[in-house]
């Protein structure tokens, strides 16, 4: 015991310069990833500005499309929006406003976009978070199982189910579930509420409220999980198959480990790494899912806000949700890079 401790201190002394350079490496790594995230956010702002401010030939006409406005009002609006200023000045003030979370003023709600976004953030986080945890768990588990017994009945059923679910439009699946479980069809009674996040007739606090929200959450969450988990099955399955022929699995088997232990303790941890990256890379699909699912179930989140903005179309509100969605995906990707460094020692060694 003491000898191992001694060798431990010796090797520790020998490589005493390692932690310092390691910390430096960590800082450079984090710095470069952070810089990349900042640059991509800046590019997002450029794209957002191009779409919403440069592409409409006359933004004021686009904004006031379909409502009676006099020339004087148009001129006043142009001045208010700063359209008389040069493009670079407008862009700088747009960047400045966005960084200070001033996202403009919604035409439809007569309210600032930032306050709308703040109101709707929590429901979306609840829906996306629950759906993501469930679909990652289900998808990874099924993926490991079907990749390990490649070509078996279980694999064929899991793979074809996930391929079919991937080919289904999210909103359509949502409507079908709505008809079956909320409206009720044939012998099936109405099991779950049709939309919204809570029943306004019930008290908005306490235990009963949580149960009510959970009941409203079931169908939207189920829809998202069904569409999203399919991708995770595919990803995890192929990374398990990549590991199948590896020599270290042969060694593990030669040690006399059971098949289940080889799978759980050796193959799965190694196959998880590429899957985690892919899962974070595909967060954008989760956002798309949130928009359509919230539209179908009128779940009062950011996705439903986008849908409401589209019906007008309420361009400042759309611009706001575009910036918020893009920023959140960029932040999540940055966090994935950070987490990944801890998960995979090989990244640290590079």
């Amino acid at each position: 015991m003491s000898s191992t401790a001694a060798t431990g201190t010796v090797t520790g002394r020998e490589t005493s310069s390692r932690p310092v350079s390691g910390r430096f490496e960590l800082l450079t790594y984090l710095g470069s990833k952070l810089a990349a995230a900042v640059v991509s956010f800046f590019v997002t702002l450029v794209i957002g500005f191009t779409i919403f401010s440069l592409m409409p030939s006359d933004p004021v006409r686009t904004l006031t499309r379909g409502r009676p406005t006099s020339e004087a009002q148009l001129a006043h609006l142009r001045l208010q929006l700063g359209l008389d200023k040069p493009i670079w000045e407008r862009f700088l003030s747009f960047v400045n406003d966005t960084l200070h979370f001033r996202l403009g003023y919604s035409w439809q709600f007569q309210q600032s976009v930032s306050s709308l976004v703040a109101d709707r953030l929590w429901p979306t986080l609840l829906l996306m978070g629950t759906a993501m945890i469930l679909s990652v768990t289900l998808g990874l588990w099924l993926g490991v199982r079907s990749g390990w017994r490649q070509g078996s009945l279980f694999d064929r059923i899991a793979s074809s189910t996930s391929l079919t679910l991937w080919s289904v439009p999210t909103f359509w699946l949502g409507m079908i579930l709505l008809v079956v479980f909320s409206v009720g069809i044939g012998p099936i009674p109405s099991l779950f509420p049709a939309g919204g996040m809570s029943d306004p007739a019930l008290p908005q606090s306490g235990f009963g409220h949580y149960v009510d929200v959970a009941r409203h959450l079931v169908l939207p969450c189920l829809t998202m999980v069904l569409v999203v988990f399919a991708q995770y099955v595919t990803i995890m399955r192929s990374s398990i198959i990549d590991e199948l022929g590896s020599p270290y699995l042969l060694t593990a088997r030669a040690k006399g480990l059971t098949d289940a232990d080889v799978r759980r303790k050796h193959a799965t941890p190694n196959a998880l790494l590429p899957s985690v990256t892919m899962i974070f890379m595909q967060l954008g699909t989760l956002v798309s899912g949130a928009i359509t699912v919230e539209a179908v179930y009128s779940w009062p989140g950011l996705g439903y806000l986008t849908y409401q903005a589209l019906q007008i179309p309420d361009l400042p509100l759309l611009q706001g949700t575009f910036v918020v969605f893009s920023a959140s995906v960029i932040i999540m990707n940055f966090l994935a890079d950070v987490v990944y460094r801890y998960l995979d020692p090989r990244v640290r060694a590079q």
């Binding site: 794209i47 954008g284 798309s288 949700t321 575009f322 969605f325 893009s326 960029i330 990707n333």
Partner: peptide, 11 residues
Amino acid sequence: ALPSLPLAISL
């Protein structure tokens, strides 16, 4: 890196 549906919707 951009989420595709919000971008497509905006465009």
